[in-house]
Design a binder for these strands. Structure first.
Lengths: 221, 221
DNA sequence: GAAAGTATGTTGTAATTACAACATTTCGGG
DNA sequence: CCCGAAATGTTGTAATTACAACATACTTTC
């Protein structure tokens, strides 16, 4: 198991090496590998496992009865998922979790939280609170990105956020076209088409997952 | 201030009356009233205040530059909002908060959390974790409700959720037409129109905010 | 470096939605 | 009961999107 990734995670922030290995034992940590495309959880399942990505990445998706995929979130190396379901273990999952690429997941049993002593437990709870709070912001951001009714507005809302995050008008995005389409809740072909139009209109430049937002200078008169 | 509502809130679960009034003082609790339609927070603002609805209700909205409103969540009496921003106080709000009706809000200063003793603080943190976790599920649900590309699919996804929650095929929803449209991210007139069609098609019955989902029986042959 | 497979771009048509304008219903006061 | 205001329903047209089908580009494998 790759301890170093866990060591740098939010969950174990403030804990030293021995505390971390004790905690991993106490929480029945177990690692499992998945191939790209494999399902890790399906909607309706129940789990008390807090999940940590030690390698690769997963998508949190909603797949409706008409076969439309909506990507709610992308969870990469060093991040957690399923924390809501782990902490409210009687709530069945609304979403699917799918390996976006080959990946490794560490599962931590949250029902074992009760067995920890108060000091450890409260430090861990504070860290968990940070995780859920940040996850909240991610979910809000996506709502923000899908709020515009039209494709161009959604693309701009998304690219703006990434640009602000990376402090640059030029950046890579973590999605391929199909994934970006599913994240923004639009058709892939419509997305490709709109990106072409936006390049023709001089708003952006892009090639594969590299994007550049072009600053428009308004001329007087 | 209406202590009884706070007393029954998730945040103060497990605390007795005197502990609660001590906490309210320690967190600089202050109540303020708002009229329907008034803005409580605007996007871009920074706050460390955890907000509690003691009366009425508020909407968490994203209003884009074209004037489209998207309702991310409805927060009613006895519930909290802005917890993410209160706990990550350097993050500017992405959303607006608006009084859905005349309401009263209690503001609790989260930067004062640090002054509490460990025991109180860890009990409070556990309760905060429950709040953020539940909020996560609400945000996920909305994503689920807006995942279908077509209006009818969104309406059905939403009504199904409410029906399951209320354990009944007949129920009231907390939204008027405009609010439901903004929640599902569709045009109000298109929503009204689709609801009429769905009634003609025998899928539902509805009148104002009272809905009934009609079970379709498939006949053999 | 050819072949096969995957990802991305383009185009046309059918279906859906946005938007505006107007009709109808509902609900509180006077 | 009537009025006005607000909410909801209806309709038509213009704009947008979904979907399918195909073209092109890029990757991987042998």
């Amino acid at each position: 198991m790759d301890i170093s990734v866990l060591h740098n995670s939010i969950l174990f922030k403030g804990f030293d090496d021995t505390e971390i290995s004790d905690l991993l034992k106490a929480l029945n940590a177990a690692e499992k590998k998945y191939n790209k495309g494999e399902m890790i959880f399906s909607s309706g399942e129940i789990t008390d496992k807090l999940c940590f990505v030690t390698a690769g990445g997963v998508t949190i998706e909603s797949n409706d009865m008409w076969g439309n995929r909506t990507i709610l979130n992308l969870v990469g190396k060093g991040q957690f998922f399923a924390e809501s379901y782990a902490l409210l273990p009687d709530v069945p999952m609304l979403v699917d979790v799918c390996a976006a690429e080959d990946c490794s997941i560490v599962f931590l049993s949250m029902k074992s939280l009760a067995n920890l002593n108060d000091t450890i437990s409260s430090r861990l709870l504070a860290n968990l609170l940070t995780i859920t709070t940040r996850k909240n912001l991610h979910l809000s951001s996506r709502s923000f990105h899908t709020a515009p009714r039209q494709v161009r507005g959604r693309i701009m809302a998304y690219l703006n956020t990434i640009s602000v995050q990376k402090h640059s008008r030029e950046f890579d995005i973590p999605f391929d076209r199909q994934q970006l389409a599913d994240y923004l809740n639009v058709e892939r072909s419509v997305l490709s088409n709109e990106l072409s139009k936006m390049q023709r209109d001089g708003l952006i430049r892009c090639r594969k997952n590299h994007f550049e937002i072009i600053t428009v200078t308004y001329l007087p008169g």
